[in-house]
Design a protein around this nucleic acid. Structure first.
Lengths: 337, 337
DNA sequence: CTGAAAGCGCTAACAT
DNA sequence: ATGTTAGCGCTTTCAG
């Protein structure tokens, strides 16, 4: 019923092989033949079967993208970049979202991703345990991770230590000595690497400058807007004489929340307190948030290009760190006192 | 090299068919056999080929999701819902993003979606033209759209006319007579239905109450945060004595922008002006935005269930409208004068 | 430049 | 409960 290459062969009086070659525009086929075949295919409403092609060639022309959760700014942007590059290459994108209901991560891995449905995998900020790594290795697909560095896997992403150093450099340069850090774990605890790296980077950058890293100024904002609001509210409700002059947030989404908390607490930014984040979120640009901006979309494209190259038998050399750039806006200034 | 069902057949001394059945846990297979086969499969590091299975059965166990652009709140949430339901059913999700570079929409359709890689399609707020419809029909896959009603296709989504009526009912009930509308086209102009419906709904709801719909109070915010900020800035820069007492936004993202524009213009909300939106965006909850909330995730799940049912030969009856609910927070109040 | 034939790895009757 | 036999729709040597 759903007809294939065969019918168009009979109609044109050609052989299946020629039709197949013509459809793919192979150079060994006469131009006239190509035209004819394509025309007939159109008339007949021919729809190719990727399964059959995949079986025959061993290539699915699709790559999988694994995300811990789907609704985070960074992931969405990166996904856009990956998609763009894949589309350009004529590849489809299969999305594996681990954060679903129950987040039954293990099963998701085995049940679907291991089915050879894709030729390669891009993992977004995912830290795999030994078993998971081993299982994915079975497929022998090229894999690359965006975000946190993952042991044994190629990685695309910013240098988190450098990013935090840049941020604290900016704040310290402005004269801040009392700065709080807002970080914390992603709620599902799936991406431990980046949060830790940033917290450590913050602490290092502070200590290098002889500045205090106070336990009670290491806040948890779960990397979300609401978390930032809550943490900010908590911080600003404390003894005003002991208030930090700046709050450094490990993500713009949290920083946006802190901005709101500050305005609710009647504090002016940057008058009473400076606030900055990391990411380059669009909302930050309009509210004047100082940040260390990165380009997740570019990272997505780079990662996609890398897997695609590897799928095509290319080399698998290490990737350069993604650029990040200090963007000074109006949420940071020299402390008052 | 990449071994298959055959090797595990030889190792166990069983036939390919039995192995195939055992792997899928079919009831006609002895439990002991199932165990043995699974164990051997594990030991051998067997990875099934979805292409082969797909070719043999004609089912890919995957559904495609087409989005106009990926980075919109509504789409991301809906995608999450679709994914959850698909995963539950053991289906993979293939993402088709039309908004990529150049947004070469036509080619995207033909080149990929038509390859029988999926068993069904969920279209997010997409309005198809005749050619596109015809082309997609070729695949004979079940299709459903979320968001704007699309001629000839089943649809999941809120009743936009009812939603706007609810919103204006709330505002008018508070005593507002001068209300501005912030809508506009999505920048790519891909989803015309919803914006139009909401604008019409607004106008109807106003007229029904004998309220004026002024041309100069029909604003364009391109359905984005930045667009909302810009439109708000423009509106609040006009003659204060002629300022509307409320701004009704067709999406929360735009309303959030208007909130910011108001605070920048030194206006208090809801003191000087009331603001409300549509959607139920998380940020709105924390900033106190009144809205008519919908649940895109639930809509995604419903749509996924519907295609899946149809894929399984189920019926294709019409779907009920998705619920939407007025959520009154602190951004709306009775007008001052 | 085109054709014939042999699979790709799995599933599905149809036996047994 | 398990084995046999054909394919699924396309690609790919190998021959013309």
């Amino acid at each position: 019923m759903p007809m294939g290459i065969q019918e168009i062969a009979t109609v044109t009086g050609l052989s299946k092989s020629t039709v197949s070659r013509a459809l793919r525009g192979m150079p060994t086929v006469a131009d006239a033949t190509i035209d004819q075949v394509r025309r007939v295919a159109d008339e007949l409403g021919y729809v190719p079967s990727s399964a059959a092609a995949g079986l025959a060639t061993g290539r699915q022309r699709a790559v999988g993208v694994v995300v811990p959760v789907i609704d985070r700014w960074f992931y969405v942007r990166a996904l856009g970049g990956i998609d763009a590059e894949l589309r350009r290459a004529g590849y489809d994108l299969v999305l594996y979202n681990l954060g679903g209901p129950g987040g039954d991560r293990g099963r998701a891995f085995r049940r679907s991703m291991l089915r050879h449905r894709v030729d390669g995998l891009v993992l977004l900020s995912l830290v795999l345990d030994e078993t998971e790594r081993a299982e994915l290795e079975l497929t022998r697909h090229p894999m690359i991770v965006i975000g946190g560095p993952a042991p044994g896997l190629r990685n695309v992403g910013v240098d988190d230590l450098a990013v935090t150093e840049t941020a604290i450099g900016h704040l310290a340069g402005l004269g801040h000595r009392e700065v709080a850090y807002l970080g914390g774990q992603d709620e599902d605890g799936m991406n431990v690497a980046v949060p830790y790296l940033r917290r450590d980077g913050f602490a290092d950058a502070m200590r290098v400058r002889g500045l205090d890293v106070r336990e009670d100024r290491l806040l948890d904002g779960r990397f979300s807007f609401a978390g930032g609001v809550a943490a900010g509210a908590d911080l600003f409700a404390r003894d005003p004489t002991d208030r930090p002059t700046a709050v450094f947030c490990a993500s713009d989404e949290m920083a946006l929340g802190v901005l709101l908390a500050a305005s609710r607490a009647g504090l002016s930014v940057p008058g009473d307190v400076s606030v900055m984040g990391i990411d380059g979120h669009e909302y930050g640009a309009v509210v004047g948030l100082t940040t260390v901006a990165q380009d997740p979309e570019a990272q997505g494209r780079a990662a996609a290009r890398a897997v695609l190259a590897e799928v095509d038998g290319g080399s698998a050399g290490p990737l350069p760190a993604a650029p990040a750039e200090l963007v000074v806006r109006t949420s940071t200034a020299a402390p008052r006192r």
